[in-house]
């Protein structure tokens, strides 16, 4: 059964159709990649799913029911966690406090929230940094904190928005390990990523968009060889070969 379905999703900003009639469906347990050149509407799709933007037309269906028009915090409670491409750490809180705040979405007492947060810290290998202020973390740590915080809301579906951007090669390998570990723990992942090494190795299926429209969907290999995708990334002259 599909965990998340986008049905003819359209989002316009004035005359600009940032997302134009995109339909896709993410199955339970898979890692679903979403790719496209800069400005093609990937983050806009995320913002529509988590209701940061109102949807112009179409529908978002999670677990069989429409979540269109719900408040962002309700969507989190339903089980959709997300990270931000431009990281949003709670700067003047420690790493542990960041994750504790997120854990409060499922528990009410401070002890339960801290216990849950410590488990997440272990899981994401952030435990050594737990008492540091979030703003003192380097970018790799902040990206990891984004994931940890989203995990602390105990999502069924995790939306990862370019969590690998700006990482060093060794951090990239760790990120791939972490994402696979999250999938093994039973969480479905919808991931936007520019770094091909990441998206091609971990995705089960990939959906490609350009100028807000769907251009291809399939296994990583199929999508990488799709002429439309090559054209979108490299231009017409490379599409024939």
């Amino acid at each position: 059964m599909a965990l998340l379905e986008l049905k003819n999703l359209t989002k316009s900003f004035g005359g600009l159709r940032a997302v134009d009639d995109v339909s896709l469906s993410v199955e339970k347990g898979e890692i679903f990649g979403l790719i496209g050149p800069n400005g093609s509407g990937k983050t806009t799709i995320f913002n529509c799913i988590s209701s940061f933007y109102p949807i112009t037309s179409g529908d978002v269906v999670f677990n069989g029911s429409s979540i269109k028009g719900l408040k962002t915090h309700k969507i989190c409670k339903l089980g959709v966690g997300r990270t931000f491409q431009v990281v949003k750490p709670l700067s003047r809180m420690t790493v542990l406090e960041n994750i504790t705040a997120a854990a409060f979405s499922r528990v009410n007492t401070i002890n339960d929230a801290k216990d849950a947060a410590l488990q997440i810290l272990e899981f994401t290998h952030l435990v050594d940094h737990k008492d540091k202020l979030a703003r003192s973390l380097p970018i790799g740590g902040r990206k990891r904190l984004e994931i940890a915080r989203a995990l602390a809301t105990r999502p069924q579906l995790l939306l990862l928005d370019e969590t690998a951007a700006g990482l060093t090669p060794s951090e990239l390998d760790e990120a791939i390990l972490l994402i696979n570990k999250i999938r093994e723990s039973g969480i479905t992942i919808l991931i936007v990523e520019h770094i091909m090494k990441v998206i091609m190795t971990i995705s089960d299926r990939i959906h490609a968009i350009n100028f807000g429209r769907s251009i291809a969907e399939g296994t990583p290999r199929e999508v990488a060889n799709n002429p439309e995708v090559i054209k979108a990334y490299l231009g017409d002259s490379y599409a024939q070969g």
Partner: peptide
């Protein structure tokens, strides 16, 4: 404090 630090992040963490 989460709201003070980042209202959008807070909202995405299930905070009304």
């Amino acid at each position: 404090v989460s709201i003070r630090e980042d209202q959008d992040a807070a909202e995405s963490l299930g905070i009304n």
